[in-house]
Write a protein that binds this DNA or RNA. Structure first.
Length: 389
DNA sequence: TCACTACCTGT
DNA sequence: CAGGTAGTG
């Protein structure tokens, strides 16, 4: 059986690229709720699906390491990966680029084509938007905003992903009136049930995100209700159907080029997509760095930390208040306001509170308890399914 | 423009 | 109630 890759095991297929932690923190960026599909599969190792393949990522002080798994329809050889590299493994981060140097005979059994190497590096750079200099942005935001400056020191390296628009849209339709841990479970079940299987690692089956045509099938609503999606099941199916039936195949691509507000309004026409979800999709997958998703939490931040007047007298987050708060932050932070917002959002998450007291994150702090319960619930769901039929 | 409600499900 | 949305008055 295949295992999740471990950098310390010295597999020769690990590749790397220069990237200081101040520009990217995997734990914060992947764990702050902008994506729901990456897990810490080993200490500091994050595994997830990106562009139809399974990746494990980890980092040292100045280097980002990546490992891409093979599966059907994927040429790369994977055997021989348990092998140790001869001599010391350079974890010092001195090497900034390329694959670990390996002996000729090993190279044959655990090959990484140079041209693939390049492409994968480009994919990673695109996914993490490494062309955007986060250090410069932090400096600018800190200059304008003392409160940001305070928290930014602890929460460096929080960066916006450039996600697949389909996955992003349908994930955030699920986010309504919901919390992160449950959303993660829902997305897992969605991919497991409707997505293409990719590979299996240590008993964990990885699937691609379901394609639009599959999501648009009329049976999907019922199936998703059985998976515990509640009223969101209909939104998902309907939105997919509308996109498939009344928009061209490069609809999302065109939204990437469209101005922010046009893109947001277009998305809003889909069922289950309000201002908040539309802004998430704009910011996280459609290159709209100025989009600021305002949820109840961000609203609290605006009032508490910025004494932002908007909506201080209102009881609910109305459209007007929503827009006022977004404008407030855009004025404060500028064209990358959405990126700045995610830093503060991240800093406010309960799971990252320990960082503020200088306590490093431990991998299994949060999860152990939940896994047990999950099994119980799956059983419960099975039962109610049988009762219905 | 704002308030209120229903909507699924789990903590 | 939970990182909302849609429909109503």
């Amino acid at each position: 059986m295949s295992h999740h890759a471990l950098l310390s095991a010295g597999c020769t297929a690990w590749r790397s690229l220069s990237c200081p932690r101040s520009e990217l923190r995997l734990d914060l960026t992947l764990g702050c709720g902008q994506t729901f599909r990456w897990r810490e599969t080993a200490d500091g190792h994050w595994t997830g699906v990106m562009r139809g393949r399974v990746w494990t990522l980890t980092q040292t002080e100045d280097v980002l390491w990546y490992y891409v798994y093979s599966h059907q329809g994927n040429q790369e050889a994977e055997h021989g990966c348990e092998r140790k590299v001869e001599g010391e493994l350079q974890l010092s981060g001195k090497r900034s680029k390329g694959i670990i140097e390996i002996k000729q005979e090993e190279a044959r059994s655990c090959t990484v084509m140079p041209e693939l190497d390049n492409k994968d590096e480009e994919l990673l750079k695109d996914f993490f938007q490494l062309g955007v200099n986060l250090g410069d942005l932090y400096r600018d935001w800190s200059a304008e905003d003392p409160h940001f400056k305070h928290t930014a020191n602890i929460f460096r390296g929080v960066r916006m992903l450039r996600q697949d628009p389909v996955e992003c849209l349908f994930s955030f339709i699920c986010s309504s009136n919901n919390h992160i841990s449950r959303i993660q479970g829902m997305i897992d079940r969605l991919c497991q049930t409707l997505g293409n299987p990719l590979c299996k690692l240590d008993d964990v089956a990885y699937h691609d995100f379901p394609p639009l045509p599959v999501l648009s099938e009329t049976t999907v609503e019922m199936r998703l209700r059985d998976l515990g999606f509640g009223y969101r099941a209909r939104f998902l199916q309907q939105s997919a159907q509308i996109i498939v039936n009344s928009h061209g195949p490069d609809w999302f691509q065109s939204l990437r080029c469209a101005p922010y507000l046009l893109a947001r309004n277009t998305l809003r026409a889909l069922p289950g997509v309000g201002l908040k979800v539309a802004d998430c999709v704009c910011l996280m997958s459609l290159d709209k760095s100025e989009a600021v998703p305002v949820d109840t939490h961000v609203w609290q931040i605006a009032k508490r930390d910025y004494s932002c007047a908007a909506g201080s007298s209102q009881k609910t987050l109305t459209d007007k208040v929503y827009k006022d708060i977004g404008d407030f932050f855009r004025k404060l932070w500028g064209p990358y306001a959405g990126w700045a917002h995610s830093v503060l959002f991240c800093a406010d998450l309960k799971r990252f509170q320990k960082l503020k007291e200088g306590i490093p994150l431990l991998k299994d702090d949060k999860k152990e308890v939940k896994n047990k319960k999950k099994r119980k619930m799956n059983k419960k769901r099975e039962n109610s399914k049988h009762q219905r039929t």
